[in-house]
Design a protein around this nucleic acid. Structure first.
Length: 495
DNA sequence: GAAAAGCCGACCGCGAACCT
DNA sequence: AGGTTCGCGGTCGGCTTTTC
């Protein structure tokens, strides 16, 4: 039995999680996110340029082979080794970059993230623990993305990455590894006995980072559909209820302290009815001035910036959809834009947008903070269009507010005010609003696929572009329908 | 009358929610 | 992964009340 770095990290998250992995390895394979892995590899390859002309240990499922290749390279006097592999006492690690300089051997771990996380420290401690059996290690360091870098001409790897020496922070952790490892072994050697471990905040978190556990479906199977964990912004307090034996929202005691939004949600569920505050909704909708421009941007991010003036992970708008409604029962007009794949879309998009939305128009977005951010970014990039873009920015209203403020709440929303929950709750039987039939069903799918689009064959590109257009168009169409629904609710009341 | 105890609102930092 | 917004929860200053 071999314990890898990821096994160790999983154990640190929760001993029951590693037990579940040993028991059902397939579930964990299935959950591996290939997209994320590819991105990580791409970043690692760029980071190798910080220490050029090293030797690569080719990946092999045979761990001993990788370890012996590594050993040969060290014996031959190689000073820079990529994917250096070591195994001892049932532990196995691969170091992204192992480098010998005037101080001694250094272990570099490459991360595509922009900051150092708690789990990275455990990761490096584990590597140090194993590798020190073979080489005297001078220091252990993290290489991660510096998102303050702005590309200007050729890519400058020394500016793209930040290097942090973590040697001192690891000492405490290295002490604990031996004990952790023997625990992992005993779990692995008799996985017929399930570790006693109740659910807790560790299920969602590892240190400060979001890290949903793959064992959740197993450990959380006794939690009902509308549970105390679904109460909006409840945080740790849900576990106070849970440890008192309360799991369903219907059992929340009446004297339990809740915020206003939480009260609405709990009351609606207990009474099994919707809560609609038409006065506030009407007052809010009065700010919407026809013609209405329903706007939705799609953006994507490049970990390694490909265009000038772009930072790592910067939101780059590449597409928008626009539904224009002339009056309350007027016709709908649709406009759209989708940039050519593989090019910097910003200028063309900004120009088209300023043609499609005249100055002084009232535009509508769902969670307008996002659309406003994109507009601000474009205005900053193109001073000649700044006036017009900021005019759109300043005349925008937000369709999300009535749901965020819980003026309109249905149990189907499960405490959420995202469009994903709001739309089916308001218009459950409208087939024209069914995202399930689309190939691209949400923003993350759109950003992932557009980033790769220029690498696809020509025929495939056309098809995917059609899917992208269909998805974005449905987003703004859904907004129109939600607005109409709110509007007619208000009309019905006043008539 | 002075020190200790109690109380409340302002402030701030952090996390959660939303969009992509 | 990013930015923005909002609200929870903890801290702290300043005020009032209690106690000897």
């Amino acid at each position: 039995m071999f314990i890898s770095k990821s096994d160790y990290l999983l154990y640190k998250q929760c001993p029951k999680a590693i037990w579940y992995k040993f028991k059902t390895p397939k579930v964990f394979d299935k959950n591996a996110n290939q997209m994320r892995l590819d991105k990580g590899n791409q970043v690692t390859e760029h980071a190798r340029n910080l220490f050029p002309n090293g030797s690569l240990v080719p990946y092999s499922s045979n761990r001993d082979k990788m370890a012996s290749t590594t050993k040969d390279l060290i014996m031959k006097g190689e000073r820079t080794i990529y994917e250096a592999a070591f195994g001892i006492d049932g532990l196995f690690v691969i170091c992204d970059i192992l480098h010998l300089d005037k101080d001694g051997w250094k272990i570099y771990e490459v991360k595509s993230s922009t900051s150092i996380k708690e789990r990275n420290l455990d990761d490096l401690a584990f590597q140090y623990h194993v590798v020190q059996h073979f080489l005297p290690i001078h220091s252990t360091l993290i290489i991660h993305i510096n998102n303050k870098y702005v590309r200007n001409g050729e890519l400058e790897v020394t500016k793209l990455f930040s290097i942090t020496d973590l040697t001192d922070e690891l000492k405490e952790r290295i002490f604990r590894i031996q004990a952790d490892v023997s625990n992992i072994h005993s779990i692995g050697y008799n996985f017929s006995t399930e570790p006693k471990q109740d659910i807790g905040i560790h299920c969602n978190k590892y240190g400060k980072e979001d890290f949903p556990c793959a064992a959740k479906e197993h450990c959380w199977s006794h939690i009902p559909e509308h549970s105390v964990f679904d109460i909006t912004r409840i945080g740790k307090k849900a576990f106070d209820l849970y440890y008192d034996g309360i799991t369903s929202i219907s059992d929340v005691p009446n004297d339990f302290k809740l915020s206003e939004a939480q009260k609405v949600q709990v009351f609606a569920y207990k009474e099994n009815r919707s809560l609609i505050d038409l006065n506030n909704i009407k007052e809010y909708l009065d700010c919407f001035r026809y013609p209405l421009y329903f706007l939705d941007f799609e953006t994507y991010q490049q970990t390694i910036p490909l265009f000038n003036g772009i930072s790592p992970y910067q939101q780059i708008p590449f597409q928008y959809s626009l539904h224009i409604q002339e009056s309350s029962n007027g016709d709908l007009e649709h406009k759209e834009f989708l940039a050519k794949e593989g090019t910097d879309p910003r200028r063309v998009l900004a120009e088209r947008l300023t043609k499609d939305i005249p100055k002084g128009s009232c535009s509508v977005a769902f969670n307008m903070a996002f659309e406003k951010m994109v507009l601000k970014g474009l205005a900053h990039n193109f001073p000649d269009l700044e006036d017009h873009l900021m005019d759109i920015h300043d005349n925008m209203v937000d369709l999300m507010v009535p749901f965020q403020k819980k003026w309109y709440y249905k149990n189907e929303m499960k405490g959420s005010y995202s469009i994903k929950y709001v739309l089916p709750a308001l218009l459950p039987n409208d087939e024209s609003l069914n995202y399930q039939t689309l190939t691209i069903q949400n923003g993350s799918m759109a950003m992932e696929i557009y980033e790769q689009l220029h690498t696809y064959p020509k025929e495939k590109i056309e098809t995917i572009r059609e899917h992208l257009l269909a998805y974005c168009k449905l987003d703004t169409y859904a907004m129109v329908k939600v607005f109409d629904h709110l509007n007619s609710s208000v009309q019905k009341k006043s008539s």
